[in-house]
Simulated scan of single mutants.
Amino acid sequence: MKITVPPRGPEERRRDVLARLERESDIWVASADADGLPCLVPLWFVWDGRAVWLSTRPTNPTGRNLADGRRTRLAFADTRDVVLIDGEATAFTAEVVPAVAVEALRTKYGWDPREDRAPYSFFRVRPLAVQAWHEQHELSGRHLMRDGTWLA
């Protein structure tokens, strides 16, 4: 494949990342346990403008890892339009999760995890670093956020 388009600037990349956070249905969630055993799963998510909200069972490896380790890397599935988000997760039980987060899940997917028979935990992932690039020619400008602050 030959690259024929110029690289995007940082402002365009940020707009593209924010648009994907609004429109995508699934996001890959990477975590690790205390021994470093990795876990990678796709989950439904919602973006509230400042954080990504996820829900999974607290007994699943991802639920345990996010509750215990609090760090995660999120990614979209498209390898030609890479978005990586490194973030810090805060766990919420079904009893204390903000209603707005649950309503956003219900609106987007028609699903309220609190209504399932099995218990679910909720996780707010605050982005600390964001990278985005299309192909090799955009690698040099891929860092869009560091330490929770947008660079563009």
Rank of each mutant, 00 (worst) to 15 (best):
W28L: 14
G69M: 15
R14N: 04
E138Q: 09
H134N: 15
H134G: 11
G63R: 02
E115I: 00
M145E: 00
Y109T: 06
N60V: 11
H143W: 09
A129D: 11
D112L: 13
P98Y: 07
A132F: 00
P98V: 10
F76P: 02
L151A: 04
V130H: 04
E103P: 01
D26M: 07
D147M: 03
A129V: 15
V125G: 09
M145F: 00
V29A: 13
L139C: 13
Q136P: 12
G49M: 11
A94Q: 03
T62A: 08
S55E: 06
R14W: 01
G49I: 12
H137V: 08
R117C: 03
G87H: 04
V96E: 09
S25P: 07
W28F: 10
M1L: 13
G148Q: 06
W28N: 04
V100A: 09
D35C: 13
A51M: 14
H137T: 10
A34S: 11
V83Y: 03
A34C: 07
R57N: 00
P119E: 14
E135R: 04
R126Q: 09
R15G: 05
T90M: 08
S25Y: 14
G110N: 10
A67C: 03
N60Q: 14
A91T: 01
A104G: 06
D147V: 04
V46I: 15
V41R: 00
R126M: 06
W111C: 01
P38S: 01
V46W: 00
T107Y: 01
P38E: 00
A152Y: 08
V96S: 11
A89F: 06
T59Q: 12
D78H: 13
C39M: 08
A34K: 09
T93G: 11
R106A: 14
R20Y: 13
F76V: 04
E103G: 00
D86H: 10
E88S: 12
R71N: 15
K2I: 12
Y109Q: 04
G110R: 08
V96C: 10
P119A: 12
R71S: 15
L54Y: 02
L144I: 05
D78R: 11
E11A: 14
R15C: 07
H137G: 05
T72K: 05
R124I: 02
S121Y: 03
W44Y: 15
D16T: 08
A152Q: 09
